[in-house]
Amino acid sequence: MSSLKKKINNMNLIRFRFWFQIVAFVLIVYGGYASLDLGDKLPTFACVFNSEGTGGKCYIGMLQHDLKNPFEIFTGFAGYAFLISLIMFMVWFWVLNKSWCGFVCPLGTMQDWLTALREKLKIRFSEYSWASRSNIKSIKYILLILLLIIPVMISNSIFGLPKLPNGLSMPFCDICPGRMLIPAFTGNFNQFYIDFSSKTDLVMTTLGMIIVGLFLVGSFIKKRFFCYFCPMAALQYIFSKPALLKLYKDGAKCTKCGDCYRACDMDILEIADDVTNKNLVTEDCILCLKCVAACPEDGCLEANFTGITIFESTKEGFILRMAMNKQKESHE
């Protein structure tokens, strides 16, 4: 048991995650070809527009679709169905917590590939200043509220406002880069279009094209660029507290060296500076566990599943991961 534990703590997380993400990507983007169907309540971007390939469907799409109905419907059976969907989403989410973002999400994986490409080209990543970093935090919640409220306003008049056109039934999907990029991986480029049929469609599809461009450029220069604005992350965070997988920190053991912060793709300052809280799954955390792998203090950071430590920071593991264990010089 203890030798297995040691093996896990000494693992090369970067490599493990790289392959895990590839497997997850294949399942989600191409799983449909092998008739894999994980349902339509997945807490990750499994795109409904990738109709043949997708191994499951994203709950954000489902949620918008459900909310389009008039209020009266929800008082009956549809209300229960809606609740059950939400619970299904939570159950999926609770298993992995935000690791859905760090290990499964195909959009996240694409961004990590772009990051790897940039690293290969020896181009420095850019960072937000701390002030702008905290200013942009609220954007994902605004997007979430909009994507919840816009579909509702199609069939219902809220505060006496006029009803919205039907073209807005999936407002987030219109602007989600996943709609264009995920099907593209199965050779389907049909989602790259601008729809001139109505004003609404024109605006939304144009926005979508702009955002996909921003996504590609942004995540090339900024690690996990899109995740800062992701409404899925906002929705997930609301339910994050009871999740089974956790990132714990023992503040007493922390020297605030900041190694974890530097490894963090989401530039989460708390991971290094917070020495009082135990649960360090913050709103932007993608639970990629890079911080645990970069921490040189024994038992300071750990990934914990249902109360059991599954991966924790150790000096030995750190030294192995940084290849400081042997005195061999490398030449390139």
Binding site: E119, K122, R124, F125, F318, M322
Partner: peptide
Amino acid sequence: NDMVAVDEWNIYD
């Protein structure tokens, strides 16, 4: 005690 941890092994990082 504290060790250098590098994320991207390029000069900048």
